[in-house]
Design a protein around this nucleic acid. Sequence first.
DNA 1: GCATCTGCTGGGCACTATGCCTAGCGGTCG
DNA 2: CGACCGCTAGGCATAGTGCCCAGCAGATGC
Lengths: 155, 155
Amino acid sequence: MAIDHLDGRLITLLAREPRIGVLEASRRLGVARGTVQARLDRLQSNGVIRGFGPEVDPAALGYPVTAFATLEIKQGQGAVVRAHLTTVPEVLELHTTTGHGDMLCRLVARSNADLQRVIDRVVGFDGIVRASTAIVMENPVPLRIIPLVQQASED
Amino acid sequence: MAIDHLDGRLITLLAREPRIGVLEASRRLGVARGTVQARLDRLQSNGVIRGFGPEVDPAALGYPVTAFATLEIKQGQGAVVRAHLTTVPEVLELHTTTGHGDMLCRLVARSNADLQRVIDRVVGFDGIVRASTAIVMENPVPLRIIPLVQQASED
DNA sequence: GCATCTGCTGGGCACTATGCCTAGCGGTCG
DNA sequence: CGACCGCTAGGCATAGTGCCCAGCAGATGC
């Protein structure tokens, strides 16, 4: 479950240039092809690398507005609220949290006006007591993992 | 920028089985290989598909704790705070938002105790007035895009 | 009505990568 | 000391890739 320096370099390389194959990666890293293959297999069966799915940009799909909604849930209604939110395509992510709210979800919408529709659909559900929404203006650090991988591979 | 049904099926297929190649995808979709290649090229140059980077699980790297921190920033200190947060590997994502806070960031840590260290490092910075943190307990809906792709490809 | 353009098909080609194998070699550990 | 593990280096058949072409159907423009 701990990763070494070679694993870190491999992940970084794949993140930068995902289209390269095992052979090309082994050339870049200066190791044998079998080694890269073995490392990749291990990282995947470890669960460190979950997969290589396409990263889709919601903005390019016509959903340029992102927001985070904090939801407060009526006691004992957690499960149904989850099930409800799962059915809303604009809900990209849902977490249950400690703190002021009970759940935090990431939403996207076609426009600020459309966001109203999405929020209505999300919170227009028995079991949700209160919702507060924060609209994302800028995204100075898009979801990233490389710095963490490098830290993890150095110790 | 709008995607049609074939694009939707292609993205869904690639998300489910990322390891298949263009040829195999064309067989599954029942279209010619050149078509799949052309669609993929278009989706990528459109920016709809940003890439095929490895999805790394922070938990498997030894960072099983996730938290969201809402930060309040001193007027005019936005830029330096961003630069500061960029240097912290445990900051996976950073947004500037409307609403109660000014910024929202996603953090990971090795443990709840370690989270304290991360938060100290994040907020121990002149320019941050106040921070409130919500620790993630469960993640009923992990980051997903397929339902949105399917909605977008149907209209 | 006719020419043009675009997107898809179906095929062919050389080249490359893959999956899978073997043998050897230097470490570590009981 | 012997067994084991990870890495190297190579060989081999198969499959996929990148790139080409000609043909064809539907939409668009004149």
